[in-house]
Design a protein around this nucleic acid. Structure first.
Length: 490
RNA sequence: UGCCAGGUGGUCCAGUGGCACGGACGUCCGGCUGUUACCCGGAGGACGAAGGUUCGACCCCUUCCCUGGCAGCCA
């Protein structure tokens, strides 16, 4: 257990009872006066030795508080210099006490002149320590997901991810939205959102069978019925929307699809706002404002990390985000999108899948639309009803629904949403058309029987947004411990 | 799930039907240096699994496992 002032002031208590534990971020960003006694606690990123001036060692230490690590100058006069300091390797944990000084070297404005370097934890086998100061492939780092947050890239991703979470909450809170904690375990099956993970306490080696047909008897299961992990909080949050007016969910969701792509996870996070007395246009306005707000927040608050992404991951990312914030999202009717794509085909564009009214847009189409035709996010609205979910509001033309997708260059669909069908008779018609069980939606239908109002909402894929912002190519590298088919390690 | 490409020191890559001749980075040892993707010298360290073909397989064939890319499902 750590002793001393740091117990009462575990983080960021610069100026209180020196020597005080300071975050690397505070030390480097002018929040601690040069000349102050400081203590930093963190992990060694690298060590370089010099014999000059009787011998000294440069140890860079990071603590996750910002992108940069701080340079610690340890002189040979330290009692444990020969025995410990020169044996430090990447990954060792240390507590450094000293003075914040202006750096004599180039490459950093300030550094710590160490009076004491306490080694808290050694790296037992430097040869096989998985994280070296050099570049690693992301594929490799996924195999050491417990150590990858110590790298530049994953530290930066974690901070951006956090920043984005907070920005989302702030965006909604500022606009009087109420955060609703919708359930993770659900009995809403047949939502049409694809395969779900079963939640059960039944003994899989000895399943209870119903009399007669031999089907599994879920009445003996924990909840007395079949249950699954949620694929969306939307249906539940609609209930709160029709009471609280402006609501949103933000939590994990689960899809048991066997999807092996750079933009799918079996467990991912989703933000789902839902607004009452609103139509599709209001919904699109909200989506656009939301994206712009959070992107702008990340640019402001995590410029250090974003600079790194622009330098090493995706040269265009900052430029792209600044354009997004400044521009107006293109809005296109689905039908116009099909027309534009058809015209592109006539102009020589080649697609694997033919373009025709009634089809769903393929990845190649979305990519062409956002990357070639428009060059910024596009909101495609009013899709054919046959390719969309039962709860989406049927338009007056009878063949389209008030659905929208926000497509972003590089990753495709980042937001999917719709105005919801608030008319019970029409909703029932859709449930019937799609062969769904009306009884299963009894409470959802109640919302249309008791004080129904037009309302709308969307789902923002959190990992896709982080990927879009950082330029990271795979959503597996923007979530701490990715869950994908055949992979639930860690 | 389909198609394609891969699995060789700790990491990233070369390479060959005949005992692993490899390189870079990291690691360890030594030298140099207010260093900073330092530099110089030296050292240790590897063929995904199971079958098959063959005198002999890391190499060819089959199956399996794993990884990546693209596609579908979607956020």
């Amino acid at each position: 257990m750590v002793q001393g002032p740091s117990r009462e002031h575990p983080l960021g208590d610069a100026g209180v009872n020196p020597p005080a534990h300071v975050l690397v971020a505070d030390a480097l960003h002018g929040r601690v006066a040069v000349g102050s006694p400081v203590v930093v606690k963190g992990w060694v990123r690298s060590r370089r030795d010099s014999k000059a001036g009787g011998g000294l060692s440069f140890v860079t230490v990071h603590d996750g508080s910002c992108f940069d690590a701080i340079q610690v100058v340890a002189r040979a006069s330290l009692a444990n210099f020969e025995s410990e300091v020169v044996r430090l390797t990447t990954g060792c944990s240390v507590i450094v006490s000293g003075t914040l000084v202006e750096s004599k070297g180039k490459g950093q404005a300030t550094e710590i002149q160490a009076d004491d370097v306490e080694v808290v934890g050694w790296v037992s086998d430097p040869e096989t320590y998985p994280v070296t100061p050099k570049q690693h492939s992301f594929e490799y780092l996924r195999e050491v997901a417990h150590l990858r947050p110590r790298t530049n890239t994953f530290g930066a991703v974690a901070r951006v991810r956090h920043c984005l979470s907070m920005a989302l909450h702030r965006f909604f809170d500022d606009r009087s939205f109420c955060w609703i904690h919708t359930p993770i375990i659900t009995a809403n099956d047949a939502e049409g959102a694809g395969a779900m993970f079963r939640v059960s306490t039944l003994d899989v080696a000895n399943l209870p069978r119903a009399q007669g047909n031999g089907a599994v008897d879920f009445s003996q299961d924990f909840f007395g019925r079949e249950t699954h992990l949620t694929v969306s909080g939307q249906l539940n949050v609609e209930a709160y929307c029709l009471a609280m007016s402006r609501v949103y969910t933000f939590g994990p969701t689960f899809r048991a699809e066997n999807s092996n792509t750079a933009r799918h996870l079996a467990e991912f996070w989703m933000v789902e706002p839902e607004i009452a007395f609103a139509d599709l246009s209001d919904n699109a306005d909200l989506a656009e404002a939301c994206l712009k707000y959070v992107v702008s927040a990340v640019l402001d608050e995590r410029s250090d990390d974003m600079r790194f992404f622009a330098e090493r991951i995706d040269p265009g990312c900052i430029d792209r985000l600044e354009k997004l914030v400044a521009s107006t999202f293109e809005r296109m009717d689905y039908s116009d999108t099909v027309t534009a794509l058809s015209r592109a085909v006539e102009g020589g564009a080649r697609f694997e899948f033919p373009v025709s009214w009634g089809m769903d847009l393929q990845s190649e189409h979305e990519r062409y639309l956002t990357e070639q035709l428009v060059g910024r996010p596009v909101v495609v609205m009013n899709y054919p009803k046959d390719i969309k979910a039962f709860y989406m509001r049927v338009n007056d033309d009878g063949r389209t629904v008030a659905a929208m997708d926000v497509l972003a260059p590089g990753i495709g669909e980042i937001i999917g949403g719709s105005q919801r069908e608030e008319r019970l008779d029409v909703l029932d018609g859709r449930i019937g058309e799609l062969g769904l069980d009306r009884e299963a939606y009894w409470w959802y239908r109640d919302l249309r029987r008791y004080g129904t109002v037009p309302h709308a909402g969307f789902g923002l894929g959190f990992e896709r947004t982080v990927a879009y912002i950082t330029g990271m190519a795979n959503v597996r590298d923007v979530i701490p411990f990715p869950r994908t088919p055949r992979n639930a390690d860690f």
